[in-house]
Amino acid sequence: MLAASVAERDGTISDVEFERFRDFFYRKTGIRFENNKRYFVDKRLLERMQQTGHESFRSYFTFMRFQASRDELQELINSMTVNETYFFREEYQFKCMVDELLNEVVRHKSPGESIRIWSLPSSSGEEPYSIALYLLEHWPLLAKVDVEICSSDIDSKILQSCRKGIYSQRSVKQLPKALLKRHFKPLSGDRFQIDRELRESIQFTQANLNDATQMRRYRNFDLIFCRNLLIYFDDASRRQAAELFYDALNPGGFIFLGHSESMSRISSLFSVRKFSKALAYQKPLR
């Protein structure tokens, strides 16, 4: 068979196959893999091919694209998205949230109205739980105001892990010991499970920023954490994400990006707000 793919012959992905996959994955997720991610992508593709019993890339690619349940596409997305973080990562933004930003948000709320926070990607849950912990520990107004935290990820499996709330020593290494003791239960194997009350206080949802219809469900947030995600996107996808965040925020709402990311280079929809501990991007109040 002249057209047999390289993967079929020697268990590798050819340049043409990599290109085809890269274009397909970009269209589905907005995530574009540059050539320097080739090893990472090939390794995961070959793993999925093995798991699903496909010997050639062509056979796997056809199966994955046309499978009615879309389960394999989701599995592939799960394996291609990186999930590595830890509690209180880039803590200065949490400090800014409780010391300054939320106090400003509260001033624009009617009595009884909740504050809504969206954290994405949730990854394995360290970020949304860090937000919750920071609010419980450092924001006295929580006694008077309801806060809803929603956290989303494209990876459906990682969301199950978020709901379980079990973490390694490495994940919790930044947490003060007293806080760890108050809100976590030690498990065997140097693992810790976050309180049930906290686990049940966060809404975890599967969401794909590239799916405009799905994204229309996310509205009326006051604060969005979207850190170290846009760095994986190209210009067009970043702009689309900025548009989605604009729609998802209430007027006057804020976004925190990762320390190496800048909304000003992506979109003119937001203005920069310099708080004493961090920069945030704000949707105009009007």
């Binding site: 609010l135 105001v145 966060i202």
Partner: peptide
């Protein structure tokens, strides 16, 4: 008052009609 998980779920599950 405090951390609350409420209407978010209902809201997210609302069917978005295609136009």
């Amino acid at each position: 008052m405090g951390l609350r998980k409420r209407a978010v779920e209902d809201e997210l599950e609302t069917v978005v009609l295609e136009r």
